[in-house]
Amino acid sequence: MTPLEELLFRLADDEYVIAERYTEWQIYAPTIESDLALANIAQDEFGHARLWYDVLEERGYEEKDLLWERDPEDFRHSTLCELAFEEGDWADPVVRSYLYDTAERLRLEALVDSSEPAIAGRVGKLLSEENYHREHAQSWLERLAEGNESHHRVQAALDRLFPHALSIFEPGEQEKEIVSQGLRTESLDDLREEWFEITIPYLESLGLSVPEPEEVARPDARGRDGSHTADWFDLHESFTATYHELGFDQPTRLRGEGA
C-alpha cells in the first residue's frame, strides 16, 4: 500500500464507519429535529467517504473491494467510529461527534495544501459542511452539560469515548512518508496537540473532567493497524449482510451516479 493509499483509507474508512453508526439513531433521536440533524450529518459523512473512496477507485480499486468484500481486518478507521452506542444514550453521539468533528476539521485543514491534487481539490467541499457538525455537537454539549443527569451521562460518555478518540491520531506504517511527501502538511502528533488545545479547555469549561491523555488506559485495538473492537465485526457483518444475502457480484449503482 502506498502512503497515499494509506492516507485515503484512513480518511474514507473513518467517515464511512461513523456515518454507518450515526444512522442507528434514525427514528430514535430525542426529537424529530435532532433526528433530522443527525441523519443529515450522517449523510454528509457518507458523501465525504464517497469522495475519498472515489480517489482510490481512480487508482484502480473497485467499490466492492473497498467496502462490500473487504475483510473487516483491512479497515483502517479509528475505534471511536465503530463503537456501539450505549443504548438510548443521546450523550454518546453528541460527545462522539464533538471529539470526531473537531479532529476532522484539523485534519482537513492539514490537507488543504496537500501535494496530491486529488486531495487538495476535495477538501474545500468537506470543510464547508464540517462547521455545521461541530456547531450541532457543541450546542447539544453545552445544554446537556447544564442538567444533572445529562451532565453525568456526558461525563460517562467522555470517559468511555476519549481513550478511543486518541486512536484518531494513531500513526500507520507510512506516517513518515505521508508527511515527507507533503500529502498531509502536519504530523499526527502535531494534530493531536492542537486537538488537545481545543477540546480539553472547552470540555473543562463545561464542568467536565477530561481523562489525562498520557495516563488514561488505552484499549488494545487501535483501528489504524487493522485491530478493532468486537463492535466493529458486528457492524461490518450487519452492513454487508444485504450485499451477501442478495448475492450481488457487483455493488448496485444509483441511476445517474457517475454518469
Binding site: E33, S34, L36, A37, N40, Y132, H136, S139
Partner: peptide, 16 residues
C-alpha cells in the same frame, strides 16, 4: 421547528 431556545432553533431550521 421544535427547539428549546433560539440557537437550537436556528440550527434545526437550517436542516429542516
Amino acid at each position: 421547528v421544535h427547539a428549546p431556545d433560539r440557537e437550537m432553533a436556528k440550527l434545526f431550521a437550517q436542516i429542516q
